[in-house]
């Protein structure tokens, strides 16, 4: 899930974030929409999701344009935005096979059967 990807960073590095994704196989999953939880992900001042990094990842996956370039001001009541965000974070893409690449050291972490191996 992209939500988890947004949290992962290469262990033992300072700037090992965001990890680049190289995809071999992806799938879409369904997940229940919960507006409060999604809103909390971009709540200010402490955002749990790094929005800039998320956009960067989306661009890398060829999905740019699904989200606005910045978090709208009234995001809590903006259902359209929240739904889009939820779709991107929880549903849209689940990488089954692929590789995560650390931007700092270039170390590669394989993803197999949907489980990234950060060893």
């Amino acid at each position: 899930q992209l939500l988890t990807h947004n949290m992962l960073m290469a262990p033992g590095t300072k700037n090992g974030f965001p990890l680049a994704i190289e995809v071999e196989k992806m799938e879409t999953v369904e997940s229940e929409f919960r507006s409060e939880f999604t809103a909390r992900m971009v709540q200010k001042p402490v955002t749990q999701v790094e929005y800039g990094a998320l956009l960067q990842t989306l661009a890398g996956l060829g999905m740019d344009g699904t989200l606005p370039p910045a978090v709208p001001d009234s995001y809590e009541s903006n259902e359209e935005f929240l739904r889009a965000l939820h779709h991107v974070l929880m549903e849209a893409r689940r990488v089954i096979d692929g590789t995560l690449v650390c931007p700092e050291t270039g170390k590669r972490f394989p993803i197999k059967d949907g489980i990234p191996s950060m060893l």
Binding site: L3, L8, P11, I115, P116
Partner: peptide
Amino acid sequence: GDLCHHDMGCGLPFR
């Protein structure tokens, strides 16, 4: 939940 294969003794790989 999402799963991650990792050794916790090397430090957790999260932001």
